[in-house]
Design a protein around this nucleic acid. Structure first.
Length: 868
RNA sequence: GGGUGAUUAGCUCAGUUGGCUAGAGCAUCUCGUUUACACCGAGAGGGUCGGGGGUUCGAGUCCCUCAUCACCCACCA
């Protein structure tokens, strides 16, 4: 097969992916006696569309995966999708709305059935988009957070935690979203800064400030700091009769350290039902709690005449009434306030007390390394004790900071799409609870909990639940432990080698996987955490659909420039944990690199080289390119071992452009060695393949159709003669200098004559690369002679013309002088000689010597001009 | 309030355990079109590494400090 003239990625990427799939080479083999390497793909939202953030993750993981295959590991990269509870339910509800329907009209069963159908189709779309990136996943092991196996594991873990007292049901304050009619976890709440009014109100003998007068109806506790002198005359628990919004109430004074005397008047009232801190205070002193706002976001009976009004309507009316009653002291405008909203759907969060299910993070009953510990303690210890390494390391601090603030995790959600909580309540006595894998006997007398689990509960089980053999998950005589022990995949691939994800879900997902997996399996879920940054637009902004110009759509890019160009653009200059900027220009640069590779391959293909020719090193250039290939191969492997993707690419980039294309191929035009060209190209394709799998495979196929590049292991590069390799290195310097001379003298024609063996032996190369000729030695007396790299070369130019070169020589002279003086200073420093490593000192001496020699040569040449 | 990161060429960024004349890509300029490639080649210019101090034979790199920017967490009556 011949390579077509121009590089057009879309012509071959799909075909190649299909060939890979047909080969089944991406399928893992747990029975293999090779070392195992595994990654769980962070399961994308099944209703989602591939965005450039996915592309980055897929690229990094695919490079790691292909790299380890090339190193000879048995590799598993497991794909799957997430049911994304709230997000998916949202999408469904919007679709139903358009049809004039809603989920309540459909009923739970029908709603779930329709959702299943819908996500079944949409899952295929995201999977095909993942394939377009070249991701070498083992599709035979694809999993889904709501497939039978995972459902089973979710229930198992829930029941186990419940039995261990780690899951409990209780009245706690939760982040209630009246818009979506569900509560969400602390981590899903976002804060939007806004300016609002701060009202100061008269509350009996006190003045209190609030931004939310509408919740104040039920306030009957005043809290002050015990050290506050202004309130010294009042006693803790002293009561007051107060005229409040809707009449007389009895209020009680509480003295507590948590109050900041500096803020406002130093006195505040509390609303335990609608504030987390107030709730904590009320628990501490066992205070009454009363609901003011209902779950729709409207005021309740206690608000009297304001009953039934939404907050925004009620607020100004309440203020009006307070003013009439003379209770409004002052109003401050522009009070900076943070509004809590749900990150999904942006509904305003109203804290509410609700009966919910929680995971206790402080109870010390979890067995870990032979001790009973709490989830919090385990989360801390696995990082502190080095079981899990986070890359980059500085995210460990962020992680610890999060754990320090961690509260019990609310896991119940008031939505339908998800894992229904495996708890039943007795119809005649709701306080009687049954928790189990299957409904209780006599099920007609029981009613199942209507809530579903937080979507992160099932994702937290991802690394191990996906490795359980489905046939064991069907067998209810087996325990969770049995299922794990019997599953070959679990034995071979867990803990997984690395989890790769954006730092923005370190808490949501990574931490929770550690929590759930250590508990359920006694193992860490992964040995390393590699965090990538956010992909931003060229101007540094977050990409958003509202600004299509700056938004890079991976699918469009793949169509136009190819997946390889996108992959390379993403890793070029990328550092772990740091955001990257991506624009069209960067993608074009990398498309150009692909094009370069394509044309190198075309040139080599033209030489009709193939594996039948014996590979032999003959010229200096041959030894040189093999030595460079050797260096590049070793350091690329080392870089990939250390997650230094950008460095690896940098070396690959320069090998191809600066060494192979610019020097070796150009030199080979003067003296051909097609078998070696073929050898170099093939080995280059092997190391380049993890980064740019499609184009390398396409070229490979055209060279040799018997096998797939993707199945190739890294090879040891053949040995070479170091001295010959260095000869060629000197030759490149001579060529550069001759080019410079031509340019300085502003001439197109230059001829040389030299006695140098190196130059004469390689003259054809010099002739080709510097575009110069040779002249006969008879009349060289009037011509200028120069020394380059220790070789004496006579040029067919006379002294007068050569003078134009003088300024270049003077420049060189001054920089050499600076270098020499630097080196001298260093070598005359006694402390340096005593303390610096011997090697370094020797190096300095060598360098000094070389510089002095070169300076002599240059001085001589300059002196000639002075004489003439 | 607590924390993290960043500050290096016009722009975007590398620079691993300190090691010797600080590197790339893009952009700019000059020259060139030759056995693959104008999605090309040969070159050039451009930096007191944010400021100050310290440790060291030696600091872009380590420590302290200040400044600016970005982000995270908590609190916000």
């Amino acid at each position: 097969m011949n390579l077509p003239k121009t590089y057009i990625a879309k012509d071959f990427e799909e075909t190649i992916y299909q060939k890979w799939l047909d080969s089944k080479y991406f399928e893992a083999n747990p029975k293999s006696n090779k070392k195992h390497y595994s990654i769980s793909l962070p399961p994308p939202n099944e209703t989602g569309v591939l965005h450039v953030g996915h592309s980055l993750g897929l690229t990094i993981e695919d490079i790691l995966i292909r790299h380890h295959r090339s190193l000879g590991y048995d590799v598993l990269w497991l794909p799957g999708t997430d049911h994304a509870a709230i997000a998916t339910e949202n999408v469904m509800e919007r679709m139903l709305e358009k049809q004039g329907l809603n989920k309540f009209k459909l009923g739970r069963q029908d709603f779930i059935k329709r959702t299943r159908e819908f996500v079944g189709e949409s899952r295929e779309i995201i999977n095909s988009q993942i394939k377009a990136m070249g991701a070498s996943l083992d599709w035979s092991r694809s999993r889904y957070t709501m497939d039978d196996t995972l459902n089973r594991v979710v229930s198992e873990v829930f029941v186990k935690m419940y039995n261990d007292g780690l899951i409990y049901r209780g009245y706690r304050i939760v982040n209630w979203d009246p818009k979506l009619q569900t509560n969400v976890s602390d981590d899903e709440v976002e804060y939007i800064e806004e300016k609002s009014k701060l009202y100061t109100l008269k509350f009996g003998p006190f003045e209190i400030s609030t931004a939310r007068p509408e919740v104040k109806f039920a306030d009957k506790y005043i809290v002050v700091n015990p050290k506050d002198k202004r309130y010294q005359k009042y006693k803790h628990l002293e009561t007051f009769d107060i005229d409040w919004i809707n009449g007389k109430i009895k209020a009680t004074l509480i003295k507590d350290e948590s109050v900041d005397p500096e803020f406002g008047t130093g006195a505040m009232t509390i609303t335990p039902w609608h504030s987390q801190v107030d709730f904590d205070l009320s628990q501490k002193y066992n205070l009454d709690k009363e609901q003011v706002i209902d779950f729709e976001g409207k005021l309740m009976d206690i608000a009297g005449e304001f009953k039934g009004m939404p907050i925004t309507t009620a607020r100004p009316k309440i203020i009006e009434k307070l003013q009439q009653k003379g209770l409004l002291v002052k109003v401050e405008e522009n009070y900076l306030h943070k509004l809590a909203v749900n990150s999904r759907g942006k509904g305003v969060i109203e804290p509410q007390i609700r009966l919910q299910w929680f995971v206790d993070v402080n109870k010390e009953v979890v067995s870990w390394k032979g001790h009973k510990r709490s989830f919090k303690q385990i989360l801390q210890s696995v990082i502190r004790e080095g079981d899990i390494k986070i890359i980059p390391k500085h995210f460990e601090k962020t992680y610890f900071n999060w754990i320090d603030n961690l509260r019990d995790w609310c896991i119940s959600r008031q939505i339908w799409w998800g894992h229904q909580i495996p708890a039943w309540y007795r119809k005649d006595d709701q306080n009687e609870v049954y928790v189990g894998l299957t409904p209780p006997k006599d099920s007609s007398k029981w009613q199942r909990d209507q809530d579903t689990l937080d979507t992160w509960f099932s994702s937290s089980l991802w690394t191990f639940s996906t490795l359980i053999d489905p046939k064991y998950a069907k067998d209810f005589s087996l325990s969770l432990e049995d299922m794990l022990n019997l599953s070959l995949d679990f034995k071979a691939y867990h803990p997984t080698s690395v989890i790769e994800t954006g730092w923005d879900i370190l808490f949501f997902w990574v931490a929770r996987m550690i929590l759930a997996t250590t508990y359920a399996t006694g193992q860490i879920p992964f040995k390393n955490v590699y965090l990538h940054g956010l992909v931003r637009s060229e101007n540094g902004k977050k990409m958003s659909k509202s600004e299509p110009d700056s938004n890079i759509d991976p699918l469009e890019v793949i169509e136009e420039y190819g997946a390889d160009s996108l992959r390379l653009a993403l890793i070029q200059g990328m550092t772990a944990g740091r955001d990257i900027r991506l624009g069209k220009s960067k993608i074009i640069t990398n498309r150009n690199f692909c094009n370069k590779l394509w044309n190198v391959a075309r040139y080599i293909e033209d030489k009709k080289a193939n594996d039948l020719n014996k590979v032999e090193l003959t010229s200096d250039a041959d030894h040189w390119i093999v030595s460079k290939l050797n260096d590049t191969t070793k350091s690329v492997i080392k870089d990939l071992d250390n997650y230094r993707f950008s460095d690896a690419y940098h070396k690959i980039y320069h090998f191809l452009r600066d060494q192979l294309a610019d020097w070796y191929i150009e030199a080979s035009k003067a003296s051909e060695n097609p078998a070696l060209l073929n050898y170099v190209l093939k080995n280059f394709l092997i190391i380049c393949h993890p980064l740019a799998p499609f184009i390398t495979e396409a070229i490979w196929q055209s060279l040799d159709q018997n096998d797939l590049l993707t199945t190739k292991k890294y090879e040891d590069i053949m040995s070479f003669d170091l001295k010959k390799s260095e000869n060629f290195n000197r030759l490149t310097l001579i060529v550069s200098e001759l080019r410079l001379i031509k340019k300085s003298l502003d001439i197109n024609y230059l001829a040389i004559n030299s006695d140098s063996e190196l130059i004469n032996r390689n003259f054809e190369i010099i002739k080709k690369l510097a575009n110069i000729q040779k002249f006969e030695s008879s009349n060289k007396s009037s011509y200028q002679t120069v020394r380059i790299e220790g070789e004496s070369i006579t040029l067919n130019v006379d002294h007068n013309l050569f003078k134009k070169y003088l300024s270049d020589l003077l420049l060189k002279k001054s920089s050499l002088k600076a270098l020499i003086s630097n080196l001298n200073k260093r070598l005359q420093n006694k402390s340096y000689l005593d303390k610096a490593p011997e090697e370094l000192v020797m190096d300095s001496r060598k360098q000094l010597h070389a510089a002095e020699e070169e300076l002599k040569v240059i001085k001589n040449q300059i002196d000639i001009f002075k004489e003439s």
